[in-house]
């Protein structure tokens, strides 16, 4: 592999024959700096590169949607109920099954542990912004045919086909709601632990999300577990695959790990205080 790094090696070899690189003989790349002065008079004073008249000189770009005096289209109709409250609606940024499979293949996600928002954010490639009303991830069906991982995943929204794809491989999927404060914690748990505040309990979903998260068809975390296992069978029959038996699986314990509806982190209870410097947990004494 002697030829590799040829260019940098060549450049370094060239530098050996050149004078010492010093503050005095450095200069920026040619043409990388824009001159903020305009030329005057005979030498460059004519049109200064803006052309003759018109928008080239004046840069009079009209504001978006402006129709030179007409009532603009966006103001023509007084009421558009579709957009009512759009700035308040919950957002669920998508991640596809393909993305998830790539993360698993490149060892960014450990499938021997249950996957939740913090696992996805800790991969360093996905980001959740709860302050911009992002309430978690939705799993989309892109790359559905190539998805082969057996996982226990918790997302905030998933379609039927995605649920089928996960369960076909012997995995488990749950959809669950987190309030913004919990999402702040899950988006960067390390940073949150450094605050030194006891872990709060998770809020229950708002009224308009209750239906979704109590529905066993959506694998909601508030649904009846027995109904969920029934729906698993129903979905397997609908999509025509044999449902792998989790009970006989070697990873049974991992696959059946769930959070309490009021719990934010796996295995850590509300009210505990995590000290990551001393590696201690401060718990309330039981009376």
């Amino acid at each position: 592999m002697a030829h590799l790094r040829e260019t940098s090696d060549k450049a370094l070899k060239l530098l050996r024959t050149l004078p010492r690189v010093q503050i005095g003989n450095l200069r920026p790349n040619p043409n990388s700096k824009q001159n903020d002065k305009r030329g005057r008079a005979q030498h460059g004073g004519d049109k200064h590169g803006a052309g003759n008249k018109g928008s080239g000189q004046r840069q009079n770009f009209m504001r978006l949607g402006y129709e030179t005096g007409n009532q603009p289209f966006y103001m023509r109709f007084p009421y558009e109920p579709y957009y009512k409250g759009h700035h308040m609606k919950r957002q669920y940024p998508p991640i596809s099954l393909l993305q998830l499979q790539v993360l698993i293949d490149t060892n960014r996600i450990d499938t021997s542990q249950p996957i939740d928002i913090s696992t996805l954010c800790n991969s360093g490639l996905l980001k959740l912004k709860p302050a911009e009303l992002e309430y978690g991830f939705q799993l989309t069906d892109d790359g559905l045919d190539n998805f082969k991982a057996k996982i226990n995943i918790e997302v905030q929204h998933a379609s039927e086909a995605v649920i089928a794809a996960v369960e076909k491989n012997g995995g488990v999927i749950r959809t669950s709601y987190y309030d913004p404060r919990s999402l702040h914690m899950l988006a960067n748990p390390q940073k949150w632990f450094q605050k030194g505040v006891p872990i709060p309990s998770r809020m229950l979903p708002p009224q308009d999300a209750v239906d979704y998260y109590t529905n066993p068809k959506n694998r909601g975390y508030l649904a009846n577990p027995e109904e969920i296992s029934k729906e698993r069978l129903v979905l397997a029959q609908k999509y025509g695959y044999e449902l792998p038996k989790i009970e006989n699986d070697s990873a049974y314990e991992m696959l059946t790990t769930t959070k309490d509806p009021r719990q934010i982190f796996y295995g850590l209870e509300p009210g505990w205080l995590i000290n990551i410097v001393d590696k201690t947990i401060i718990k309330r004494k039981l009376e």
């Binding site: 542990q113 800790n122 360093g124 748990p189 632990f193 982190f265 295995g267 990551i276 947990i281």
Partner: peptide, 9 residues
């Protein structure tokens, strides 16, 4: 503590 370690990137 293993649950905490799992949460550290």
């Amino acid at each position: 503590w293993r649950f905490v370690e799992r949460l550290l990137p």
